[in-house]
Design a protein around this nucleic acid. Structure first.
Lengths: 204, 204
DNA sequence: AAAAAAATCGACCGAAAGTCGAAAAAATAC
DNA sequence: GTATTTTTTCGACTTTCGGTCGATTTTTTT
């Protein structure tokens, strides 16, 4: 009477991997049940539809990201670093070791969109807290924190997680982040080095 | 030997209307050929695939928006108003008279995403020009214009064209627009009235 | 051991995109 | 004005895919 939950997790894991490597739309239910060695009926015994399954897969992913983000929050690194840490930990699965691309560059728009939306929802309250921390410390100075955080998230996602990223975007992003939060010039400057470094690793 | 182009346009028009009112995914090729009173084979004589057709429908839409945007550019209204005018004219089809919704609110993500991307590509060079105009006039003061314009577009899209818009976003958006372009405080203030007005019309 | 509940099976269904060879219509050549 | 070639149209057929359903097996409960 709980073998069920194991199956469920097993299927979720298989689907997660297929969705990420080949895309949601390009993964058929048949492929999933093939890999899992089960029949159609069994699959639909656990999930009412493929899309509902996607929803659950995404939830899994968000949970993982959320944990990482919360972990960063609890550290004692400076507030600006926290913010950047949380934001960069939000790259859906891009930065993960083996899997990588094949997800949002080509055409996995549905999945990417859903992930992105939930990711922003999840990260907002955390970032609000961090920004408030920054305000108390005198590093930031602004009102309407939630709105500003939302825009920061929109901006970072649109700038970095889309295919149109250019090296020259960084300095503008830094500039605008500082002004958005009412920080002193240079507060976010360390971001440039960070990105330079990761670009080099990828040999871009 | 050119009846073909007429058919093509006819099909494009039918598809455009169906895509907009019912969504791309929810419109079947069968529905299109039903409305057009043609056979499957004829459809595929003109379009290699449904998705390619979407691409062409989108191009049509973009062209229309582009013309409107260019028209705004040629007027003699103040630069800040031009910018806002262009940006607001970019709402894919939202603001259009009879059609409206049923597009990006529910789940027409693929189409919305493609439109949005092309719209940004199209609008960037125009806005760059306008911002340069503003700089010459001393209204704006900034470097990296292309990058800043891109962010302005990302931000406006993410703020207004997504389902998460809140009244309180406006003032932050105004603030950040001004800072992004190096404008004086208040330069973009008129935006608030604009939005208030359109909200009222819709009875929100 | 019997009964009930949970889990599994796979043939089948319907919708939808896309194919293909043949035929009709139109344009061009002679 | 007829033959030939090109363009356009037709619709039955194929394939893929998400999803259904009643039957069957396995596991749990009593």
């Amino acid at each position: 009477m709980k073998k069920g939950e194991k199956r469920r997790q097993e299927l979720l894991k298989i689907a997660y991997e297929l969705f990420i490597t080949r895309g949601y739309e390009n993964t058929s239910v048949d492929e999933i049940i093939d890999k899992a060695q089960i029949a159609k009926g069994t699959y639909y015994y656990y999930f009412p539809s493929k899309e509902q399954m996607l929803e659950e897969v995404i939830e899994m992913m968000i949970d993982a990201e959320a944990e990482m983000a919360r972990h960063i929050m609890e550290t004692t690194i400076p507030v600006p670093q926290k913010i950047v840490g949380i934001i960069t930990s939000l790259k859906p699965l891009d930065a993960e070791q083996p899997i990588k691309d094949a997800l949002h560059q080509p055409e996995n728009i549905l999945m990417h969109h859903k992930v992105r939306k939930k990711l922003i929802e999840m990260a907002m309250p955390l970032l609000v807290e961090v920004v408030e921390e920054g305000i108390r410390e005198g590093i930031f100075d602004c009102d309407k924190i939630a709105e500003r955080v939302k825009m920061l998230l929109i901006l970072s996602d649109g700038t970095f997680n889309e295919g149109t990223f250019r090296e020259s975007d960084i300095s503008v992003f830094i500039d605008i982040s500082e002004k958005l939060l009412g920080a002193q010039r240079g507060t976010m400057g360390f971001l440039a080095d960070l990105i330079d470094k990761s670009e080099m690793e990828e040999g871009k």
